[in-house]
Amino acid sequence: MILVVGGAGYIGSHLVKELVAKEQVIVLDNLSTGHREAVDEKAIFVEGNLGYEKDLEGVFSKYPIKAVMHFAANSLVGESVVDPIKYYENNVGATLTLLRTMIKYSVTNFIFSSTAATYGIPDVDIIDESTATNPINPYGRSKLMIEQILADYAKAYGLNYVVLRYFNAAGAFESAAIGESHDPETHLIPIVLQHLAGVREKVSVFGSDYDTPDGTCIRDYIHVTDLAKAHMVALDSLLNGTNKTATYNLGNGLGYSVKEVIETCEQVTGLKANVEMADRREGDPARLVASSEKIHSELGWKAERNLQTIIQSAWNWHKNQKY
């Protein structure tokens, strides 16, 4: 059985949709940001917290778990700056509780959701796994701390792990059964689509004077289903012994500017956005684009869905929501 912590959240629930076709799945989630209805009915759902040893004991003592996939982090950069305690207690402290329980029950396969925020503001156009990590906020630092802890645990306790550094996850499940639903919403594509659906009055663009072709920030957007499939091949690599330890970037390898994203949303929906130019946000790099060549060459994975497909799938989901 595979334990998915945070499996009721945005990316976790999409992974579970893929995983239940191949494995028995247990989802552990405290529903602080996840949604019970997003969990596939074929999965066993347990409401609980990865930081509570009693909750973990109840799962590990009852089920024969062969791998753990960890999606249960807090992930708002701005919030991490004003409330770092929350991020270090949950993203680091609670993960240590999870790892300790895994070791106790001799569960040695672990897949960790990490982030492009571990790189901070890189000085290269295309980021690969050899790019220096230099996070600039508590969120990125909390993720990098766990990456470093995993390397130590691998040496000391025989832990096998794959770290997956996400770039900008977006889109929705093909059937539009589940999609991206955060409160508050901080991601560009759902913000634009909520605006076009009549929920928001305008879209704010933070900075138009960056050193990019149109002056707005460039980011690498990856469809959430492509992300889920990357987790599937990463899991296979652990279970079949291909990998003992590995770190991979997950992105499209293509960058799209904020203006390009807004224009594509307008094309997909046939609606015109009310766009307001605003000041830059502190700490926003001009360009964050991933090289995913390493996971492609080692495990055969690459992103298949382009920006148009990402936004169309997201719009299909947003149209069905009752705001």
Rank of each mutant, 00 (worst) to 15 (best):
V5G: 05
N240Y: 12
N316L: 04
D279C: 05
L307M: 12
E298T: 11
Y248I: 02
R100P: 00
I44A: 09
R200F: 12
H318E: 15
H231K: 05
T242K: 15
A72Q: 07
S257T: 14
H182K: 14
D123P: 08
K302Q: 09
S61D: 13
L227P: 03
G140W: 06
H187L: 14
D40E: 09
K155I: 12
K104C: 04
A132S: 12
T115F: 10
L15A: 13
D236I: 06
V4P: 00
A132N: 07
R219K: 15
S292N: 05
V77S: 13
V5Y: 08
Y87I: 10
S114R: 03
I189R: 04
G253I: 01
V25H: 09
G120L: 08
S75P: 06
I222C: 00
S313T: 09
G270Y: 01
I149V: 14
L144C: 01
S297K: 15
A228Y: 02
R141S: 15
I103Y: 12
T33K: 07
A314I: 04
T133D: 00
L250V: 10
L56C: 08
S106E: 14
L98C: 04
V162E: 03
E41D: 15
D29G: 06
I111M: 08
A273L: 08
V5F: 05
E304W: 01
N91Y: 11
K17W: 11
V5P: 02
V39M: 07
N306L: 02
P190G: 10
L76E: 13
N316R: 10
D40A: 13
I2N: 01
G179M: 10
E18S: 10
V275A: 10
P122D: 12
E282C: 03
G58R: 11
D211A: 13
T115R: 05
I44T: 14
I295N: 00
K22L: 15
K42V: 09
F173W: 15
G171P: 05
V82T: 09
C217Y: 04
I189M: 07
G93A: 02
T97A: 09
I311N: 04
A117L: 09
N90V: 14
G179H: 02
N74C: 07
W301V: 02
L271V: 04
D83W: 07
R280T: 07
L98A: 03
L96R: 07
E263A: 14
A290M: 04
F112I: 11
Y105S: 01
V289Q: 00
N90A: 09
I2P: 09
K229I: 10
S237L: 04
V39W: 08
I26V: 13
K22S: 15
K272F: 02
V258K: 03
M145H: 08
A116E: 11
G179S: 02
V268T: 06
V233W: 01
E185K: 10
D284G: 05
K302T: 03
G270K: 00
L99C: 01
L227D: 06
R281T: 08
L98V: 04
A278K: 14
T245N: 01
P122M: 06
